[in-house]
Each structure stands twice: as C-alpha cells, then as structure tokens.
C-alpha cells in the first residue's frame, strides 16, 4: 500500500498550483458557503422550522418544486425526442439546429425572462391565441413551468445525445434479426441502455429549474401564496433585512435539492447496475 500523499512525478509545480487552487477555492467558494451554513445554524432547529413552516414559505416551496418537477418531466420526454432526432436522422443543416439547443445556456437569463413574458403575455404572440382559448399562461404556474422548460431542455439533450451516439448498433440489429419488433427493440434494448443518462438529464434539469431566478421571475407574476417562487422570497426577505429568514429559506432549498440528487444518484446506480448484470 502506498502511504504517501502523492505519487512520484517528474513534473514540476505541484505545490504551487495545488496551493493556489486550494487558496482560491477556499476563499471564493468554501468560505462564503461556510457563512451560509454557520449563520443558518445560529437559528437553531426550532428557529429554522419556524421560518420554513410559514404558509407563505411552504407555498413557495410547493410551487417551486412542483413546477420544476413538471418542467423536468416534460423536458425528459421532449429532450429524448430531440436527442434522437439529432443523432438518428440525417439532413442538411443538422449542426446548425444542434447548436440552437445550447441557446438557453448562452442567453442571459434576464433576457430569456422578458422575452418569454413578451411571447406568453395575454397580448403576446402565443399568449393572445391561448388567452382567446381560455388558457392564461403568463403570471400563472403554467408560465413558470414554460420558463423552466426553456432553461432545462439543453441539460437533457446534452446528456442523452452522447449516450445515444455511443450505443452499439449491433445490439439493435441482433434484437431485430432474432425477431423482435422495432417497438420491442426500442423498449427492451435501447431505452434500458440510455436510462442512466435520461435520469441524469432529468436530475440536472430539475435541479436547475429549482434554483432558476432570472428567466422565471418576469413571467411568474410574483403573487404571494400563488406565483411566488422560493428564490424571489429570499430576495423579499433580504429587502426587509430579515437575513436569518432568507438564510433559512435558502438552506431549506439546498437541503431538499441535495436529498433529491441523492435519491436520483441511488436510482442511477440501480439502473446502471442492472445493465452490468446483463
């Protein structure tokens, strides 16, 4: 067993670069995060609970996690279709469409926010016909979900796409030559193999939607108890100089997100271990 901290290497600069990395990481990332956790612990369990169980806070959690879940499910479905479209069909200009998928990563969130609001407002391009049909989108949870679909889609496409590309086509051909129908091959051969990446894409898009602020806040309408997301409630608390309240809401969000990612990781190791057994 090697008891040394580091394996021998002839390359220079380890101490310097690692030292700088740790210093910068500690100062920029770890110190501020420690402030959040330590300030939050000043509240104590009962103080934390008191803030979290406030009906307005609970309503914001329910709204944020509910709409984020809906958006992540929709994104997983359409993300899979788009990823399939980009890997399995061939047509001119495909690379152009492929780079459009990254638009939500590149577009500043405030810009997407006001643009989506302009599209879906009752007077907007899509909002008006929908309004005539009796569906109000902007300033309702539907609008929030649409904004979350916008920012979450690339996460699903960009995790599923490489998995589809790496798929061994022989396996599908074997299934078909052994008499499986196209549908059976899709459901029993292809889907199980890309399931781990679908789960990752779902989780990434879910997590991003929970924390999203810029693209959601304009279309949300921000009515307390009804269309007020948790991120906005943190800002409201800060504007009232209620720092502990803001910290408690933030910690609640972080704890729930990490629990969620933990469950998703379990699901993922289950689905990939099932593959290894085959």
């Amino acid at each position: 067993m090697n008891l040394k901290f580091k394996k021998y290497s002839v390359l220079p600069g380890f101490g310097l670069t690692l030292g700088y990395t740790l210093f910068y990481l500690g100062f920029i990332v770890l110190l501020p995060l420690a402030a959040l956790i330590i300030r939050g612990s000043e509240l104590g369990w009962s103080g934390f609970w008191q803030v979290i169980s406030d009906p307005r806070v609970l309503a914001s959690y329910k709204l944020t996690f509910g709409t984020a879940l809906a958006a992540a499910i929709i994104n997983t479905f359409f993300g899979l279709i788009v990823a399939w479209f980009l890997t399995r069909t061939h047509f001119p200009g495909k690379r152009f469409i492929d780079s459009i998928v990254d638009l939500p990563f590149a577009l500043p969130t405030a810009v997407s926010g006001i643009a989506l609001t302009a599209v879906y407002a009752p007077t907007g391009w899509i909002g008006k016909p929908l309004m005539d049909a009796g569906i109000k989108v902007a300033f309702t949870p539907i609008g929030i979900t649409i904004a979350m679909i916008f920012i979450g889609l690339p996460f699903v496409v960009r995790t599923v796409q490489p998995a589809l590309e790496e798929l061994e086509l022989e396996l599908e051909e074997v299934a078909i030559s052994l008499g499986a129908s196209q549908w059976t091959t899709l459901v029993k051969v292809i889907l199980p193999m890309i399931l781990p990446s679908l789960i990752t894409g779902f989780a990434l898009s879910f997590a991003r939607a929970i924390g999203e602020y810029g693209s959601v806040v304009f279309i949300a309408g921000n009515m307390p108890m009804r269309t007020e997301i948790s991120s906005l409630l943190i800002i409201t608390k800060l504007e009232q100089y209620d720092f502990l309240g803001a910290t408690a809401i933030a910690l609640g969000m972080l704890i729930m997100s990490f629990l969620l990612l933990f469950v998703v990781n379990l699901l993922q190791s289950w689905s990939s271990s099932r593959l290894k057994g085959v």
Partner: peptide, 12 residues
C-alpha cells in the same frame, strides 16, 4: 447552487 443563494452568501 441557485444564483440567488450565490448572491446571498456574499451578503452574509
């Protein structure tokens, strides 16, 4: 980490 929480930590 959510952008709002990223700002909050610097306020704290």
């Amino acid at each position: 980490i959510s952008p709002i929480i990223s700002g909050l930590i610097f306020i704290l």
